[in-house]
Design a protein around this nucleic acid. Sequence first.
DNA 1: GTTAGCATGTAAGGAGTTACATGATTTT
DNA 2: AAAATCATGTAACTCCTTACATGCTAAC
Lengths: 200, 200
Amino acid sequence: MANTKRTHVLQFAVLGLLHEGPLHGYELRKRLNGVLGTFRAISYGSLYPCLKDMLATGLIAEDGPADAGAPALTGRRARIVYKLTAEGKDKFQQWLADAGPDAYEDDLFGVHLAFFGRTDRDIRLRILLGRRNRLEERMATLRSNLAKRRERLDEWTLTLQQHGLDSVEREVDWLSTLINQEIDGTPPSTKSTGTEPASK
Amino acid sequence: MANTKRTHVLQFAVLGLLHEGPLHGYELRKRLNGVLGTFRAISYGSLYPCLKDMLATGLIAEDGPADAGAPALTGRRARIVYKLTAEGKDKFQQWLADAGPDAYEDDLFGVHLAFFGRTDRDIRLRILLGRRNRLEERMATLRSNLAKRRERLDEWTLTLQQHGLDSVEREVDWLSTLINQEIDGTPPSTKSTGTEPASK
DNA sequence: GTTAGCATGTAAGGAGTTACATGATTTT
DNA sequence: AAAATCATGTAACTCCTTACATGCTAAC
């Protein structure tokens, strides 16, 4: 049986970027930062084998040099431009429609959110709720651990854990805002949630 | 040539825990959560080979069954209790004294902080400053990216990046508090920055 | 008498990195 | 002529996880 497992965040991200138009590896890699976590720079040693794999699986194909999107390429080294195949588009749609656990676990969630513009509203809502739920579970665990061990931990460990807890709390707040906006149809705000909230 | 590279957060954490007294693998693993990121549960498939390795390198040794710390162990399966060797203690001290980049990069920073109780005050300060610096660099990059691309990104990507930025900002604030306390000698506060007053 | 928890371990594999190998073109 | 940037790719290695293999004891 063909191993269809491949959750592979990277593949998802590549499909999403290629969904906007054909690209070659070098360019793809640069744009990957925006889609993957803000600070992830994927290396070529990771990307090229991935593309190779996707080509072999038929998710992408080499694009004939119909230089539509590419801005005035002169000689340079022969670049290989990839585009989505029908199967690739299909796969991407499947991914977009998945609101299961895979969609709100850490890494995956960020990528899903990056493609929310192309995700159905009800799927979006389910992913956001799933994510918030997961975080709330974590918070509960953390709080009970903290309460139990409070005396046995030194101050540094405590501050660290407290900061972690605060972080998760703030992500939950952020999600709640998004969820509410999603429910009453307001587009998401770009405003900072942070530093100078005025109400305390 | 003997590859002495091994930065290995895990080894550092194990040394730190063993520094308080001999422990066996199973117990070690449970305590690792507290020291590593709050949500990292290291698996046995990772821990046991690591212990094996450290044993081979001479950082730890099997402890004779002088059941000092262990509470009333009856039969059970033969557990293997490890203790630090002189080299292990040495290695740990070296690690504690390291205020270089390794000490404030993501994973490593958390572990270092967990052992701050056994770290010299000036080293602590340098690590905190190094960490804050790194985060401020990131913030600068992020902000300029955000400013440059603001128009070309959809609202979801923007909120995501904004939330990321806010997160980093708050970590910087937290670090600044710790740094100030470190400078004027106040012990770190356990109080939450957030949501609840938390006297219990 | 079976399930849950204690306890140690290995094999296979997934997801990524660094370092290397190659080579063209543009800028200094 | 050297350096920077563009561009693709492989090999070896790291660090981790899952799934398996083993077996003991306590509790239900």
